[in-house]
Simulated assay, not measured.
Amino acid sequence: MSLQALRRGSGPQFSAWRHLVGKQLPARASLLGSLVPASGWAPDFLTPGPDHASPTTGAFDAIRATPRRRLAADLRRLSSHHRLPAWTQLLADGDRETLDAVADTLAAYYDAAVTPFVDRVRAVLDADRACRVHTMARLGVGAVLAGLHPQMRWQEPVLELPGPPGQGQINFHLEGRGLLLSAHIFCGSRPRALLNDVGTPVLVYAPAWNPHGSNLVAEPPDTRPRTSTALATLLGRTRAAVLEALASPAGHTTKQLAQSLGISPASASEHVTALRAAGLVTSLRQANTVRHTITALGAGLISTATGTTAPATPSARWPDRLP
């Protein structure tokens, strides 16, 4: 998905990321370009399921172990939409050396395009998850599903998804398997459903973005005196209480935070702004409400100050959806 985001050039939040990654592509990146079109379907063997969703859970090993039958089927489907270079026939035949070359190149690409930005990705996903948890608690699963995309419609027990242009309606039956919702930073505007060929059906959607930080690449640190002042005042009693209050998995709105701590909304907003400037808090707009949640850095600060285990951030319980 990140390869498609890199190629299609859409989304201002990816502009700085594309500029940086474009200068660090691995030498054999053309292998990936042949397999991953700028839009539309990409071979499923490149995206292992939930059990192997990240490098730490064996994603690249799973790709290297792809059966020949799966390779042939995926490449046959891809060739019906795009003309493939001659070397992909070796891949379709199950040639291990060719498959290893693809996996090695994908791993090198991951190191350039994803690894340096993991903290930023986690902050976006954590904030999005906090909002979905809050919506689930208040309004139920139907509101969560309907809020994932403007064109999604929930008519229990049917969920209607926006499909690719020119394709008619396709029906999927979950048959009691449930549905895993997975926010993905590179999903693009249209949700993607992985339903029929996996044990756990997955709905991948684009997370909402933090209105105070709209780029995947974080802005360089502000070295002006006001930043140092913000960091120096973090040890104040009220600001520490604000940080601890925001360690709640669902986070708080400014109004909720003020009521919880017995301070004015203006004071709560001021403290949140300072904490956000220091990278300890993130904020996410949902409709007319802005919800604030703690970042991994903020959780670590609490842990260091209190000598306790850091509060679990949402990303600790969600499998990575990369590459």
Rank of each mutant, 00 (worst) to 15 (best):
A103P: 00
D104L: 11
D104T: 08
D104Y: 04
A107K: 11
A107N: 08
Y109L: 15
Y109S: 02
Y109A: 06
Y109G: 01
Y109E: 09
Y110F: 12
D111K: 09
A112D: 06
A113S: 09
A113M: 07
V114F: 01
T115E: 13
F117Y: 14
V118M: 10
D119L: 11
R120K: 14
V121A: 10
R122V: 10
A123Y: 00
L125F: 03
L125Q: 03
D126Y: 00
D126C: 08
D126F: 00
A127T: 06
D128I: 04
D128T: 05
A130K: 04
C131F: 02
C131V: 15
V133L: 15
V133W: 13
V133D: 15
V133K: 13
H134C: 12
T135R: 13
T135V: 15
M136V: 08
A137I: 12
R138W: 10
L139A: 14
L139K: 14
G140M: 11
G140D: 14
V141G: 10
V141C: 11
G142R: 14
A143N: 09
A143I: 07
V144W: 12
V144H: 08
V144F: 15
A146K: 09
A146N: 04
G147W: 04
L148C: 03
H149Q: 04
H149R: 02
P150C: 13
Q151G: 05
R153T: 11
R153L: 10
W154S: 08
Q155G: 03
P157D: 03
V158N: 02
L159Y: 08
E160F: 13
E160K: 14
P162S: 08
G163Q: 08
G166P: 09
G166Y: 02
G166A: 10
G166C: 10
Q167V: 14
Q167W: 11
G168D: 04
Q169A: 15
I170P: 01
I170A: 08
N171G: 11
F172R: 07
F172A: 07
H173A: 03
L174R: 11
E175V: 08
G176C: 03
G176W: 01
R177H: 05
G178F: 01
L179P: 02
L179R: 04
L180A: 08
L181T: 06
A183V: 02
I185A: 04
F186M: 05
F186Q: 00
F186S: 01
F186Y: 07
C187Q: 06
C187M: 12
S189T: 13
R190I: 04
R190P: 03
R190G: 03
R190F: 00
P191V: 02
P191A: 09
R192T: 09
L194V: 15
D197L: 15
D197G: 14
V198P: 01
V198E: 08
P201F: 01
V202T: 12
L203N: 07
Y205S: 02
Y205V: 12
A206T: 12
A206Y: 00
P207S: 03
P207V: 05
P207G: 06
P207H: 01
W209E: 04
P211A: 10
G213A: 15
S214E: 11
